[in-house]
Amino acid sequence: MEIITIVLAGILIGSAVYLMLSKSVIRIIIGTAVMSHGVHLMFLTMGQLKRGNIPVLDDDVSNYADPLPQALILTAIVIAFALTAYTLVLALRSYRELGTDNVEEMKGVPHDD
């Protein structure tokens, strides 16, 4: 199972990289979202899969799934949302100011200072 998830995570990350390298802002944002999914999956796998029960204390259970990656991923999910929201609004705003969503055209004049 772990091999499958790792490969899947790798594919997600690779595709995310492809999306992030493209010209359109929306695709870049989607790319970051996809990448966060890939990283979360990879992270979860590192804590070993399906080795125990849900990490909620229970008298009948002695084996729990690793809670630490879960806690870290939970944080990461929320941060990834903040990141997506911020980049989306940034894209929106720059589209309105510059009239383009093509990152190649967004390059401004170099600063004097």
């Binding site: 595709s15 990289v17 390298l21 493209s22 929306i26 309105r96």
Partner: peptide, 30 residues
């Protein structure tokens, strides 16, 4: 508020470079 089209015309060489980098990163991640 965003434009309708989701992507721009990209030349083949551009795509190929991106593809290679993407594959590299993906393989390395795996």
């Amino acid at each position: 508020h965003l434009p309708k089209r989701s992507r721009h015309e990209e030349r083949v060489r551009f795509k190929m470079t991106n593809f290679l980098i993407a594959v590299g990163v993906g393989v390395m991640a795996i």
